[in-house]
């Protein structure tokens, strides 16, 4: 006859083993789920960094292309136009000025060449904001505003204490400058207002850029949903993501709208920003070349 106590112990041990397995399963589920979540988080982080890197590369390429075009314009077309102007000056000395029709045509050609030179300079400046690299964001925006002020129908005001804005890396300054350009262009193109106000502020943690207008405002959600209209907004958001910035729109206040950009201040600026001036860089290269 089998001892009851032995059977009891056998059942107890089997039960204990089963319970241990159950506890192990529960612990494993907790561990595995946590591990999987961590991996997912890491993967998302890698993907985010990759996207950011792609965006950064795209923006860098865009800037490089702008620089190349500016350089080509200055070095090739600019030089050729200057030579044309010089040749015209020399021609004016030997030309027969008695004939009024010839003189009129000559003067017209000369003024057209001068105008073209001015246009090329303006396009070059717009492509590569040299003031930004030399004198910083506040000066570059001031320069931009001054040029816009030449248009009499539009009043553009810029408020900033240049000393309060610390110099940042080329990436941050260029990003803020391009965003400012985009916001102002949007205000000019779509707001139907006649006043634009730009404000540049900084505290110990962040740089803040505020652009407001007195136009008709817009429906932020509708613009975001629209594939074509939201392109400018998306471009601003993409640029901001590269410098960890944020944007806020206040479009409900009638009239106009107000865009606020915040970018964290870089405590330790790394290397000196690469010169933006295409011409000086080219010259220095020539100088460095051994004769």
């Amino acid at each position: 006859m089998v001892n009851t106590e032995n059977i009891q112990w056998a059942i107890f041990i089997a039960m204990l083993a089963m319970l241990m397995m159950a506890v192990f399963v529960i612990a494993f589920v907790i561990y595995y789920q946590k591990k999987q979540l961590e991996q997912e988080k890491k993967l998302r982080e890698i993907e985010k960094n990759y996207q950011r890197m792609l965006l950064e590369t795209a923006l860098d390429s865009e800037e490089s292309e702008r620089r190349r075009i500016a350089q080509d314009l200055h070095d090739d077309i600019g030089t050729m136009l200057s030579l044309t102007k010089l040749s015209l000056n020399q021609l004016s000395k030997i030309m027969n000025k008695e004939e009024s029709r010839t003189e009129f045509t000559f003067n017209k050609v000369q003024s057209l060449v001068e105008e073209t030179i001015l246009h090329v300079r303006r396009i070059t400046r717009d492509l590569v904001p040299t003031t930004l690299e030399q004198f910083g964001l506040a000066a570059a925006i001031e320069d931009f505003v001054r040029k816009l002020g030449e248009n009499n129908t539009l009043s553009v005001q810029f408020h900033c204490q240049p000393d309060a804005i610390p110099r940042q890396s080329q990436k941050v300054e260029l990003t803020l400058y391009r965003i400012m350009q985009e916001l102002v262009n949007n205000a000019i193109k779509h707001s139907q207002g006649n006043e634009i106000e730009i404000e540049l502020l900084a505290d110990k943690d962040k740089i803040q850029l505020l652009v407001s207008d007195n136009g008709r405002g817009f429906d932020l959600r509708a613009v975001r949903e629209s594939k074509r209209a939201g392109l400018g907004l998306r471009s601003i958001e993409s640029r901001l993501s590269v410098v960890d910035g944020v944007m806020q729109y206040h479009t409900l206040s009638v009239p106009g709208c107000r865009a606020g950009i915040q970018v964290p201040i870089e405590r330790n600026r790394g290397k000196k920003p690469e010169p933006l001036h295409p011409f000086r860089r080219e010259r220095s290269r020539v100088q460095d070349f051994p004769s």
Binding site: I11, A14, M15, M18, L19, M21, A22, V23, V25, I26
Partner: peptide, 11 residues
């Protein structure tokens, strides 16, 4: 439930 049924399965 897993703990309950694991304890119960041999009893």
């Amino acid at each position: 439930l897993l703990l309950y049924y694991s304890a119960n399965v041999f009893v």
